[in-house]
Design a protein around this nucleic acid. Structure first.
Lengths: 232, 232
DNA sequence: CCTATTGCAAGAGCACCGCTCTCGTTTCTC
DNA sequence: GAGAAACGAGAGCGGTGCTCTTGCAATAGG
């Protein structure tokens, strides 16, 4: 009964988790480029070479943190939207946008890690793509659902602009949504993350005094461009 | 007449210029976080400690590169706009946006330096603010000029939304422009740089096939939100 | 013109970094 | 129980930012 010593596999999982959480903490202080494997080891009471048993290189550790960050942001957005009535598309968009912004402000170093300047020479592995699309899917689904609900006339149903834009992969992602709206959906996505990046990276300093109100305004404006007009 | 030996001041200016250009070259290869003073010195045939005669710290060198980058981007945008007829506001906006995007693609590492993740702990000195506002001013002036030219009815001249948004410093910057348009001006600014960042940092991979056409579409869309409707 | 001051490059050195390798020890697997 | 695999410790390599000292060259003042 006294065999509560963790097995090798358990110990390994625990070490990996500790390394990642310690890295997140240190990254919050000195930023991603300042993250040091030696410091992580020191913090854990380990010798530096021991870390390499779990992450063969610094980039591998960063990749793991990137995947975690994408997933973390993804679930935050998913949960925020799920708390909203499926009929209130504008409300869902506001909830999603607000959750993204909130997550970014709560985890600035991780946001910078995934949406800031990529490290030159660092090529994101294949398996980081799927977690990365998670937030994007949340936004895309809000728009798609809104158009499925009321497939009436929407804003500007001009010709086949989408084909001209040569968007790819969007056909399956946003079925039943006009091409223009699909393109505007990309703009919504860009606007939200552009806003968050500008706010977090300090580019609004001097021009935006109340970021909360401005953010609400922005989401209102972009919502009108991608959601079908409510019948009045 | 044989005194073409450079004076001390000349030599110093030349060394500073060489250090900066060498740094830019190396930064293009390994990125800003990978920029190494020792490597710069090595490349110049200098011993590493000599660099500190010109830049007392690595951050000071980075600051100099940041200021140069802001100014470089600023003049690029200014020149692009000047080549356009002042009456064609949409054309001017397209020119400005295109020049920003072009500069970013030509100088990706410098773009990442000023619009990517800021280094935690690094506080941008006061004198970097003015060069930073240069591009922004170009965009703001396009909108302001357009409204000065035809101060007729524009899009959505609702109440004093601007006061609610608590934008600051915008009163002097965009005189005669409705508050809503001022706020949308910030959105235009955000959208352009959000687009360029997303494109440069690889977030559009998988969803945008022809970025050129999509960019034109985006600029068309945002132009409509901030420029007074042309009389028809 | 000669001297005192200043600017400069060189070199050694400090503490840090990512990463590799070896060496005992512990744990798992057959 | 024996062999294999995983693990932590430690030394070591070449790199980093940065400091300090030393000797020389260019400038400035008398």
């Amino acid at each position: 009964m006294s065999d509560n010593r963790p097995s090798r596999a358990e110990a390994r999982a625990h070490q990996i988790a500790t390394i990642k959480s310690t890295s997140r903490r240190l990254m919050a202080e000195r930023g991603a480029p300042g993250l040091s494997l030696r410091e992580v080891a020191r913090e854990m009471g380990l010798v530096s070479s021991a870390i390499y048993r779990y992450f063969p290189t610094r980039d591998d550790l960063l990749t793991a943190l990137i995947v975690d960050a994408y997933n973390d942001l993804g679930v935050a957005a998913e949960r925020a939207v799920q708390r909203c009535s499926k009929r209130d598309a504008t409300g869902r968009l506001h909830a999603a946008a607000a959750s993204i912004r909130k997550w970014a402000k709560r985890n600035p170093s991780e946001y910078a890690l995934i949406y800031g300047s990529p490290v030159p020479g660092y090529e994101a592995p294949e398996f980081t793509i799927e977690p990365a699309t998670r937030v994007t899917m949340v936004l895309a689904n809000i728009i798609t659902d809104a158009w499925r609900e009321s497939p009436v006339e929407g804003p500007a149903r001009e010709a086949s602009l989408g084909a001209m834009l040569e968007l790819s992969g969007m056909e399956e992602v946003m079925p039943g949504v006009p091409d223009v709206v699909r393109a505007r959906g990309l703009m919504v996505w860009t606007q939200i993350f552009g806003f968050v990046s500008f706010e977090l990276f300090g580019h609004y300093r001097g021009s935006v005094r109340n970021a909360n109100k401005f953010f609400d305004f922005v989401v209102d404006e972009i919502a009108e461009t991608v959601l079908p007009r409510s019948r009045d």
